[in-house]
Amino acid sequence: MSTTHPPAQSTPARPTSRSRPVPRSGRIGHGSFGYVFFAPFLVVFVIGIAAPLGYAAYLSFFQDRLVGGNVFVGFDNYTRALGDELFRAGLWRVTLFLLVQVPVMLALALLAALAIDSGRLRWPALFRIGIFVPYAVPAVVASLMWGYLYGDRFGLIRQIGDALHVDVPRLLSESWMLASIGNVVTWEFVGYNMLILYAALRTVPQELYEAAEVDGAGELRKAWSIKLPALRPALALATVFSIIGTFQLFNEPNVMQSLAPDVISTSYTPNMYAFNLAFNGQQFNYSAAVAVVLGGVTAVVAYAVQARSMRKEQSL
């Protein structure tokens, strides 16, 4: 820190070295230098993402049987996956979850973000952190905790219901399970989505609000005409994240399975199905095919939503 002596080696050679005629292999050198910066990412990307994906795709064209060994089967695993009722049921289940839970969660996140941004709350920082804290709770812990609350005999919700003489439905039964899981996921991710939206709101220039106020706009009007349009890209982003997350639903149902094994089957969600195929059934190849199909479906849906929202963006 405290360098008292003058910089001794402020080399006078520097200017000359800079003015040294650079061999003009020019643009190529320039371009390839970029790859050096790019390389660390590329290495990690190839090792961590591209290679495993490629390997999974490769695996999906074989069948390793307990009797008969490993054989190349072409697209057999894929035709089986497309006709697999268990896989389809799981896919339908997460689609239903997507259609109900994601809008509810995003609406709540939006409401929270707008409320905090409105400046009308007493302790906005407290609300912000309070809503965000569940995101810091690991999904496994959250699912266990909610699982205990849902418990049919000694769960808190049931006990409160009993005390108030209200008939609480069996939250871990077949008809309620998806909603119960939806509640856990909402609880976990409202804060996260709120932060995305809130950050987007902070980028709205103050002058816009001032101008609106001059025009006589109240808080609601400002929210409707300034904030919501400004939030559109952030909302699209949050939606895409949520779609991907929903199709990959795994932790919550997997943990709750021990509380309701008769409701949550091994194929309850597509990801659980792929996991159980691979690790309980030793069907690594078929599991890889299921995972590839699931990845494809997710990509298509996420892309469709994004493309749609971008088109809207441009039409504005």
Binding site: E174, Q257, P261, D262, S265, T266, S267, N276, N280, G281
Partner: peptide, 11 residues
């Protein structure tokens, strides 16, 4: 592993 998928719901 699939006992709970089959016998479970019918128990």
């Amino acid at each position: 592993s699939v006992f709970k998928d089959t016998v479970g719901p019918n128990i």
